[in-house]
Design a protein around this nucleic acid. Structure first.
Lengths: 131, 131
DNA sequence: CTTTGTGCAAAGGCTTTGCATGCTT
DNA sequence: AAGCATGCAAAGCCTTTGCACAAAG
């Protein structure tokens, strides 16, 4: 079979977006990243930010969550940890361990005959600085 | 303090929406509910369905989740169970037990100094009938 | 030179809102 | 009679897409 992987080209915009996401450990939306870049003087377009973040998430380079109000937020991916505690107010994110969740997922999958189970587990709260 | 609770009026539309949601155990979006009602001959408006479902969810009468593509889906609430396994294809929903999750939530809250922690835990998979 | 990426603006999809009318209380 | 609920259509928001131009390989 032919490779399904596409190697993206190295453009200035792509580098800028990558840096902007990496610069902050908290989850940020495409629009936030775009604003951040524009304020830094970048001339990158909003559509490009959307496309770039989407591509980076698809390639596994970024982690994705949906905020409570439905927006898509991105973060640089830390392998092995895929659950987060996000501050509703400032967006600060803490990676958390959920011992046993993976096992529980497998148990559930078998128990109910479901396949390709994916879990979306996020905790939202108010951090001490924002309380 | 004055009561923040509003007692909604008993309208034909409200009853129809309530019945439509209760009729199916799977999560359904406002538009789905609206379509269902229209096909049954109801003349309820889409905005009313949105408003009604939103109100019922706010009052705790309905459970809410966000589908992977960002839509809001509702289900009649079963007290004590707030985690679901949803079939990506047919929407069939199974309520699941996550022993220890509540305790974990409390532990996390204390550990990181977060308050008012809310967890969004949903499992999406393909059920046996849809595989 | 060919192909992919970018920008801008328009289009899309879901949800909310403004306002006049109808129905509940 | 007074006020919330409803309907319709318009507006809002976030996100995606079409297309011509620019840049990368």
């Amino acid at each position: 079979m032919t490779s399904t992987e596409r190697t993206p080209r190295n453009t200035r915009q792509r580098a800028e977006v990558r840096d902007a996401v990496a610069a902050n450990p908290a989850f940020a939306t495409s629009q936030t990243i775009h604003d951040r870049l524009r304020h830094e003087g970048s001339k990158v377009g909003l559509a490009t930010v959307y496309r770039t973040l989407q591509a980076m998430a698809a390639s596994g380079e970024l982690d994705t969550i949906r905020t409570p109000d439905g927006q898509i937020a991105y973060r640089t991916c830390t392998p092995g940890h895929h659950h987060h505690l996000v501050c509703r107010s400032c967006g600060r994110t803490v990676e958390i361990d959920l011992p046993g969740l993976e096992a529980t997922t497998r148990r559930i999958a078998g128990e109910y005959g479901f396949a390709e189970i994916d879990h979306e587990v996020e905790f939202f709260g108010t951090c001490s600085s924002c309380a």
